[in-house]
Structure formats: structure tokens, C-alpha cells
Design a protein around this nucleic acid. Structure first.
Lengths: 107, 107
DNA sequence: GACATAGGCAAGTAAATGCTTGCATATTGA
DNA sequence: TCAATATGCAAGCATTTACTTGCCTATGTC
């Protein structure tokens, strides 16, 4: 899995909104998703393509409709393999921060 | 807290590497951090400024040296307020996905 | 068959991004 | 005091990004 694609896909607020919308109601068509966005259909298509490339969204054709489904796995992996690492030493980092900012060893 | 700044800060691999380096050894100077990066000092400075603006890094001057400290709080908040939400319905989303991809109601 | 609906493809554009180069300032140490 | 070290500031540039407009295709419906 390309973790960089996932981070880049999450970097845009419109794309995060799309994920939110799918989280609220899974399996929506492109047109339905467009309803929430203040941009053209093409722009939404491009955002969704990026999300699909990052494996955050999976699609399936139903006749002339393209249904979009949320895939939560990459989010989990971002946490497990990236954010979690920092959390494990969270207290230590905060101690460092406080120690040095509030007058540490030589100040 | 501006969650968008945090996501944008995390979108670049060089900036994630900088966080990794600070995680490995906290309180490094700009020059020390430059040692790990294949770019000019100015580029690193700009990356660090973005991280600081996103509140992922805090700095403190020690004479002519600028020390950089990791602040894990925004990462925690990204998890709590964003990723966690999706995780709570992770199984449901995966069920939706499987159901529709492997031949659902009408296929 | 004709027409509306759902979506795709591709070129164009303005703004953001990542990085560089050049020069200036401040601290430290011989 | 002079030079080396540590960092800052700002303009310039190439690439990427987000979005648009215009046109084309396929599915469903009267």
C-alpha cells in the first residue's frame, strides 16, 4: 500500500468531505455525491479518482450508475503504521516540550 | 485547531520524514535536521515552518541555535476527531463493500 | 427511435507547492 | 576583532493541483 497516496488524498478538504458523505451514506452514485459539493461534476470525478487510487474508495457499476463505497482499511493502516508510533511516545514528547519551553536545564 | 493545516502538513513525505527524525531524537537544531534531507537548508526551513504552523513542531531558541520539538497533540486529534470516526463503523463499511462487490442484491 | 440521465475523456488555466539561489543578520569562539 | 557557524528573508522558477469548459458515450425510459 502506498501510504503517500493516502496522505495526499486526505490533504484536500473536498476529498475529506466526500469520505464523510460516504461514511454517512455508503454506496452513493457520482451524481448524488455531486449534490453536496460546490463544484462541477468533473471536479468531483477527479477527486473520487484520487480517492480510488489511494484505495480509500471502491466503485462498482450498476447499469449506468457508478456506486462509491468507503474503504476504511487505509485509514486504519495510517493509524497503525504511522500515527500510532508517535502516540506510543506521546507522553515523553510532551515532557520534552514542557521541559524545554518552560526553562529547562540551562535557563 | 486547524485540522486542514495538519493534514496538509502531513501530505509531504519530506515533512513526515522530519517528524520521524524528531521522533527518533527530539530537540534537534535546523542544521542537524538538514543532515538527513537531500535538499537545501532553505527548503528544510520552509518545511519546518509549515510543521510549526500546523502546531506539529514547537521551537525554542538557544543562543544561535533553534531547537525543534515534536508536538504529538495534533496527531492525536486527527485520530480522535477524524480517523476514529471511520474506524467505529469499520466493520459495517467493509460488509457493505464485500456485499456489493461480490454480487449483492441484484447481480 | 428519441430523449433524458449518468458518466467519461481531454485540453486549458489559475493558483498552490516544493525547491533554489543570493544576500543579510546574529551568536560564538580563537 | 575577525572568521566561522546558525539561521532568516525574499525573489524566482518549474511542477503539481484543483477546477473549468466542451464534447462524446452508454444506459434507461416514453
Amino acid at each position: 500500500m502506498d501510504i503517500d497516496k493516502v496522505f495526499k488524498a486526505l490533504a484536500d478538504p473536498s476529498r475529506r468531505l466526500l469520505l464523510d458523505r460516504l461514511h454517512r451514506e455508503n454506496g452513493q452514485t457520482l451524481s448524488a455525491l455531486c449534490g453536496h459539493m460546490a463544484m462541477t461534476r468533473q471536479a468531483v470525478t477527479q477527486h473520487l479518482a484520487l480517492l480510488e487510487d489511494a484505495n480509500l474508495v471502491a466503485t462498482q457499476w450498476h447499469g449506468r450508475e457508478k456506486l462509491h463505497f468507503l474503504n476504511p482499511v487505509p485509514l486504519q493502516e495510517i493509524y497503525d503504521r504511522w500515527i500510532g508510533k508517535f502516540e506510543r511516545n506521546r507522553l515523553r514528547a510532551l515532557r520534552d516540550l514542557k521541559h524545554h519551553l518552560e526553562g529547562g536545564d540551562d535557563e
